[in-house]
Amino acid sequence: MEHLIIPDLDPILKRYPDPNREHLIPLLQDVQEEQGYLSKESIGVISRHLEVSPAKIYGVATFYNQFRFSPLGRYHIMVCRGTACHVKGSANVLAAICSGLKIQPGETTRDGLFSLEVVACIGACGLAPLISVNGEYHAGVTPAKIKRILNSYRKREEIHANG
């Protein structure tokens, strides 16, 4: 899934010409915006540019929830973990998705189909607990419903693949 070529980050790096550690976070944000996630290769390039070790960069990036380390899946699931959703059982919903897809938030399934992200209140608390898949909302979800929802996207993908 991951591209092994060295990503062309030159246009972004040009915005931060001097190797100053303070540029690390804005630089990571720009790269994620451009590429959707932070690849190993990107972190390698940034490391050489800023003269900061990849281990340190990875450490900083994992400190913040906003960074991803795998590309988005074709279906990107956002699970609301805001207060209202929490009260209505979003923790179980999240657990059901994690075990159903065998990934953790921030990760992408091996087949590249699904990726998962945890977000704060989406602003539709009346429909709690709430998830969104590529922008489609599913309201009042339960662990049981999760199975069906995931399967419906899998089916959609099959139909798509078969033409």
Partner: peptide, 19 residues
């Protein structure tokens, strides 16, 4: 060398190689 560093935060913090 800097092969390892802290990664993650709070109860998820670990010492880890990149990725």
């Amino acid at each position: 060398v800097s092969a390892i560093d802290f990664a993650g935060r709070g109860s998820n913090a670990t010492v880890s190689t990149p990725f």
